[in-house]
Design a protein around this nucleic acid. Sequence first.
DNA 1: ACCTAAGGCGCG
DNA 2: AAAGCGCGCCTTAGGT
Length: 840
Amino acid sequence: MIADENCKLCKMWQGVARVCERGFGSEHADILVISRLPNSGAYQDMIEASLTEAGVDLTRCFFTASIKCRNFTLEARKKELKACLTYLEQEIATIQPKWILAFGNEPLSQLTNHSGINSWRGRVIDGPGYKLIATISPASVKRNPGQAEGWQADLQFFAHQVAGIPDTVKIPRMRVVKTKRGLKLLKQAFLAADLVSYDIETTGLDEWGKDSAIVTCAFTLRTEEHLEVWLLPLYHPESPFNRGWRRVLAYLAPAFERIPKKVAHNGKFDARWLREFGVQADVTFDTMLAAHLLNENRTKGLKPLSRIILGVAPWEISTRNLVDTPLKEVLKYNGLDTVYCYYLYLVFKEELIADLRLLRIFNKLMMPAANDLIDIERRGTWTDPEKVATAVNISYRMRDEIDAKLREMVPNPSNPGSSIYAESNSPWPTNSKGKPVEVNFNASNFCRWWLFDHLGLPVLSRGKSRDDETPGMPSMAEEVMIELKATNHPVIPLLLERSKWQKYCSTYVTRYQEVAGDDNRVHTTFKLHGTVTGRLSSGKEDEEKITARRDRGSGVNIQQVPRDPFIRGLFGAPPGWSFVEADFGQVEFRLAAFISGDPTAIGLLQRGVDVHLEMAAKMMSKPASQVSKDERKHAKPVNFGFLYGMGWKKFIHTAKTKYGIDFSEDAAKMARKTFFQMYPGFLTWHARQRRLAHQFGRVQSPLGRTRHLPDIYSSDPDVVSEAERQAINSPVQSMASDMNLLAMILINRQFKQVGLEAYTLGVVHDAINFEIRNDAIHTALPIIKRTMENLPLKRTFGVNLTVPITADLKVGAWWGGATDVLEDHVYNFNPVKELYVPVR
DNA sequence: ACCTAAGGCGCG
DNA sequence: AAAGCGCGCCTTAGGT
């Protein structure tokens, strides 16, 4: 077969033992397996073993590679892949495979025009005469053993596709509701069902949008041991209920709400929409959240989970625009979602029952929180429209003024600069197409050329090298620019100042103004499955994240609002209401003390001592009473950094960039030493977490939340070290966020019981934000503080905390403009005297 | 027009 | 060799 040992089509031939290695395997193969490079013996063994395990007949396989020269020193880029494709195409023409299994991004991009292996893996892609399925490369599995499970599942899926194994899941009869009588029957079916798995299809992502509508609904109902699927057309143009779909929902709502068990995949989304249109239904079991809790590392989508766990073939819909898709197609798709969701529920339920601590977290934290978040996301956070408008104007003006100054300094052939720096005659830079780049004061190729080539400022740091020949691009990070201030070139402070205003314009103030509705509220989507530790993440709905479709996004990340009062002060409470922020105080340090059992740390916390002050005293070798404010400030990064195993080098860096404090090498080393001398228990705790991770491949928080750390078994020591540090951090971060979640749930419950006009706006990891009507504050504050400081961890999770937990409350008209409420005043709040009356 | 990767930076 | 952890969003560059 084709192989040119004199090939010089690209650089890869240099220094390899064998140029252009051909593939091997059965001449009558109908399966082509493509790796990145010709496999070494060990990788070939690994691939063959895994394929056999998945059920692929090796005698039907031909093995080859994207890049035919096994060159480990040079990196194959587009050019090389294109050159080598010639040989690959010849192999395909000769073998004429029916199936191709592509390992990694290289064969995927060579053969399909697609790139990004993680979004394309596990999908059947049609090629000329063959079907291609891609997955990650065995090399990446070996480096990150955490990938092994998903990799094997992809191979299994490939084997199923090749063998044509039928779906393992039986699809019940589906019936479509078309008439009034059908609606009546569906209502009766609701009343007879003990469980429903449901899903809705919608016109857009924001339920409050002007044209938003529910296109179809599907319900898998379980009644006395048998399943039936009901499909309900609503707003779809072919639907008989197209005009009266809201009335249909209203008619069905009471019966639907009465079904005791409601299962859905990412049910918060569906429940939020249904609530918008008058259906008040909580989700009792969310399969996506269960999947996440059981294994936080795996993919969360209904389709990949169904593929991996149920072994079913993918079910797709031809277009994203449901209104233009035939009703029949939409309904079938919608119905299958609910059927597979039901079968996933059966699997996950058993898995949770097998781990009662996880089941407890699921039932007592995740599901109640998910249902609370429905209302929280719907409410949104109020922004002051006038303040926002002013902030937008100021931000743009500041940025544009700086731009104007910069533009005068931009090199101009007819106006050679008067800078004290030698201006080289380095030519104006061009882009990949050979066109001159435009003036751009962001971190662009123009600026890199201007600063480092034209003005000759020193390159202090570079990014990653993209290939072997060219070095990485000069860094324009803030810390680099701060260093460059020393050059006294006037362009540096301008660029530094500009980047702040540019960020305000692009990411913050303008976005807030764009997404605030008529009610001046901005919304977010919280994900309970957004992090591996159990923290919530915040942002837009997934589908809104596409860069090219910025106009459609309407959510913001409420957890990354800059602390600058100029920005944070845009959020607040409407007239007559107050913004209340409740923070747990140094909760991670407290929990680290609890988990490690370090007697010094526990003792200090029990006595209510300021740990930062104490650290400063130790560092300065003097009594705490003589520690200055500045000295205490120096102690803060010490406590935060070394807690999770930071090295002295990184410590110098973070102390400088995050706290603006200079530590010399010796001082940093000394600080680290002092820290562990003061809390020797932290060192043994670190060692214990490393040992546990190596022994079990996972660690658990005191409440029972699990962090799987398969990478601990990596052959790469860097990867192992990373997993070890995660083993130290995870239980602490997990417990802190679960406590915050529990507090939120309990506080909301009390607000409802008392009927208070007090509402949660969101959580920011160890803090909860509320909006409370002024006449309810004196009732709400004690509830908040008492709940946060006295969480029923013993009763709910069997955990006896040995350290006190404190909550700090702030009340005000605006976030960030709020003032602390003294401890005594929380329990004795005098609304007349003490209520912060906002000046508007 | 749409997509991905990387750099950079906002938050806890 | 290098070594806190956990996130999401925006921009640029370089593709199809």
